[in-house]
Nucleic acid binder design. Structure first.
Lengths: 147, 147
DNA sequence: TTATTTCCTATTAAGTCGGTAGAGATTGTC
DNA sequence: GACAATCTCTACCGACTTAATAGGAAATAA
């Protein structure tokens, strides 16, 4: 299961994407519109800003805006920012690789193989689907053919 | 990430699969051979027994054995037994379906769509790969073509 | 009767999840 | 300059999960 936080992040980013790339929205507007707890959303947006996805302005007429076009932000990227690695095993993660401790016996890599393939299939979808794709209505894609 | 418990379960089941369908192994043998904490493995095997995957005998010469042939036990099944639903969203789960609370706004299903496709790709692999496939060396499959 | 082995329940320490609280910093307006 | 609006930051909270550990009860074989 993806976290509630990641769902909120995607909903908020979709709202910002539909507002337009330069256009800013305030936390409260997004929170109200998407029915997301306001203070919780504050943390999420701040995080997304620190990670380079959003810009912000303080004070009156402040708000957040996308720094990149919606077709350049993938679901996979957002998920990794918020929830951490997508990989089912540390030894398959590109963002948090760790050698498998358990696997020095020969059976270790039998487990790795199946999860490597599942992971590849999973991220092929998530990394190919952008905010623009989600908004647009078709399930995806930048890269893949028809679903 | 899949849980440590699920990794232990898969390793234990692979050990039992290689012992043979009728053949039993004792907790200690599996624990030693796979370097799994013994008392933890007890819980896991007991759980797998209660869920119908294993049979057991107590007392001297006791042990656990597979109730089904290794080519009839999929990775997906084991994962669901140990870790619970594989679905990224409750509204996509076959074993723990719940309507999405957040999704009554129209954007709700934009999120669902992309995760539905990722989930399908993921489980296509996990539900097609059996213990026998894992043992055998090829990544999979009963159903799919070549990897 | 005794040793062996599975069965079952409770407990624990550490971490995660989802959220709340409140004060501080910055900006626009009067 | 005062003031209100808004983002920024840190701390905190209760409930839950994870990965074990502990210890005794029940069953079986010799």
């Amino acid at each position: 299961m993806i976290s509630q936080k990641a769902k909120y992040a995607l909903r908020a980013l979709l709202a910002l994407a539909e507002a337009g790339v330069g256009q800013s929205m305030q936390i409260s507007d997004i929170a109200d519109g998407q029915r997301i707890p306001r203070k919780f959303l504050e943390q999420i947006l701040l995080d997304l800003k620190h990670r380079g996805l959003l810009s912000s302005r303080r004070g009156k007429n402040g708000g957040y805006a996308l720094l990149r076009a919606p077709d350049l932000i993938t679901v996979g990227e957002v998920l990794r920012l918020i929830d951490g690695p997508l990989a089912p095993l540390p030894c398959l993660s590109r963002m948090a690789y760790r050698r498998c401790e358990d696997c020095d016996g020969e059976d270790d890599c039998r487990i790795r193989r199946v999860f490597a393939e599942a992971h590849r299939a999973n991220t092929a979808v998530l990394d190919a689907t952008t905010l623009a794709d989600m908004s647009g209505g078709s399930a995806h894609h930048r890269i893949l053919g028809a679903g």
